[in-house]
Nucleic acid binder design. Structure first.
Lengths: 211, 211
DNA sequence: ACCATTTTGTTGCAAATGCAACTATTTTTT
DNA sequence: AAAAAATAGTTGCATTTGCAACAAAATGGT
């Protein structure tokens, strides 16, 4: 079974009981607000209940990197490395976020609430899914040229669509940050890809040409 | 508690009982042998019980990328993305590997063996740890220059040593693959870092200079 | 409908990187 | 101990990339 939500297979009223048991806190954030920042020692996980957010980092040269783009049901928080880099989670739309302390989640609750197992299984699957996604991102970033990075990423997006067409989930500006390349160099390369007949574009709709 | 092994907190005779319950299989591999390859639909996880291995991929240009270097107690298997890229796990020393089917792991076993919970908690923590590590790798690969990639990686390795000195865990050839850069360009940049007083090297021992 | 802001599209140029082709050194195998 | 293989170290050169600085187009707010 594909798990999409941390609460998959758990009915709503039980969800509410569980949340109490976990001492979970729900918070809402407006677009562009900082959800959490500099979270080196914060031992909690967050779940995006609605809306979208990005995990971003600025390096000491001021380059912005989008570490990850989060959507509904994304889990974040295990993300933060020991390195004290300047990482923040920023809401890219209005959103609701649920925070649970990691230790509360892990420990079998004393009351032994019946859905705890289901919840842990869901978290396991979400983490596995995230690992797959991180590996996909690594796959892209490990390409040695902008062209290959673009093609890998486009291939990934196109792979779910039989027409090999898809809508970019970002602006081109953000895409450059996601691929960790210079925007103008990326635009130039997209033009080259069009000229060379690899892709067609119409705004943010991109179609891979299968020759 | 830091979790280093999937069996942490479980005594050996129980481990053996559990392995039966999971239908786990232990296999041994000689150095340089392929542990697993082209594993698109294989739904198992592997745990390196002893020895070391690399997860590698060759792209269509023949460039080798070291996706990840595995050591004792590393978990692999969730790694493999939906993309059918040519990924293999290769033993870099003689090693013992334990394979467990993912579904067996996830499902509460009917016999409800008492350490199943401990095991799942350990797996959760190992997965979280891996997510942190993947993010560290992403942090490195998202740097825009070879110099910054090297410095990030060196900083990571040095951060556990008060003398800011460490032994590279690979050959320089492999390091280039790990950072996804051209080896000769990397060697040139290492020379520049030495000339500019950022690092000292002695073979594979590297010391970061804190000026 | 207007203005302000963000995004897209371009370009010249300097700097960084990859590539190819070597030699020297170290490690492994026979 | 010699030979073979792998690794390390270098360099010239072509290509790619990043940077800076624009203008054009699209988007958002009032």
């Amino acid at each position: 079974m594909e798990v999409n939500s941390i609460f998959e297979g758990i009915i709503e009223e039980d969800v509410n009981k569980m949340l109490k048991c976990f001492e979970a806190r729900k918070m809402t954030f407006k677009k562009d607000r900082t959800i959490i920042t500099n979270i080196i020692n914060v031992k909690m996980i967050g779940i995006i209940l609605s809306g979208t957010a990005n995990i971003i980092r600025y390096d000491y040269n001021g380059n912005r990197s989008i570490i990850e783009s989060l959507e509904e049901n994304s889990v974040f928080g295990e993300v933060f490395s020991r390195l004290g880099s300047d990482i923040s989670v920023i809401a890219t739309s209005d959103c609701e976020v649920l925070f649970i302390e990691y230790e509360h989640l892990i420990k079998r609750c004393k009351k032994n609430c019946p859905y705890h197992n289901a919840l842990i299984n869901n978290v396991l699957k979400l983490l596995s899914k995230k690992i797959v996604e991180l590996n996909e991102r690594l796959d892209i970033l490990s390409k040695r040229s902008i062209r290959d990075k673009l093609l890998s990423y486009f291939e990934l997006l196109a792979s779910t669509n039989p027409k090999r067409s898809f809508l970019l989930p970002f602006t081109y500006t953000d895409l450059a940050d996601y691929l960790s390349v210079d925007r103008s160099a990326m635009m130039r390369e997209i033009k080259n890809l069009k000229d060379d007949g690899f892709i067609k574009t119409n705004g943010r709709r991109i179609t891979l040409i299968s020759y």
